[in-house]
Design a protein around this nucleic acid. Structure first.
Length: 152
DNA sequence: GCCAACGTTGGC
DNA sequence: GCCAACGTTGGC
């Protein structure tokens, strides 16, 4: 079993939206590295930290669970969608997404500020400046530390 | 709103 | 295959 961090702009799709929807397709990812993680490494049952960017504060707001492994991201074929990709082939879709379900919202978010200054979390990808990857692997140790020690 | 860091595109 | 130009992300 693996652990992940999923980034979303807080005012675009938040942990509250996921709570309301119960589950959602993690569509619209148009970055090869992120796609490869979803396609090759994410398995049903994996857990993910739900991270808000462009928020106050930025940080981990809760937990989500992978409930369906990678499948075609249909937004790539929707001309009206922001993530439409005219060059993707229906018979060999370029973009994939997984389905995630709501698990838990933290009482208080674990802020990026906290994550950056905690020595237990050294090496976490989200700490690196300029790390724009929106689907990141997280070590079990870091995941558990955030969930059990920092979050309420 | 600014801008640094990064990914992608396209000319050569 | 290189690299400049461009667009986007995301912290501040």
């Amino acid at each position: 079993m693996r652990y992940w961090l999923l980034k979303s702009e807080g005012d675009c799709y938040s942990i509250d939206d996921l709570k309301k929807d119960t589950k959602t397709s993690w569509s619209g990812i148009r970055n090869y590295q992120a796609r490869n993680f979803m396609r090759d490494d994410m398995k049903k049952g994996d857990l993910a930290l739900f991270y808000h960017s462009n928020s106050k504060p930025n940080g981990v707001y809760g937990i989500a669970k992978i409930v369906a492994e990678a499948h075609s991201d249909e937004t790539q074929f929707d001309k009206k969608d922001d993530h439409y990709d005219a060059t993707s082939d229906k018979n060999n879709p370029r973009w994939m997404c997984v389905d995630v379900a709501f698990v838990k919202k933290f009482k208080e978010p674990v802020s990026l500020e906290e994550i950056k200054h905690d020595p237990h979390l050294e090496g976490m990808m989200v700490r690196q400046t300029g790390s724009r990857l929106s689907v990141q692997p997280v070590s079990e140790k870091h995941f558990n530390y955030i969930v059990k020690e920092l979050a309420q």
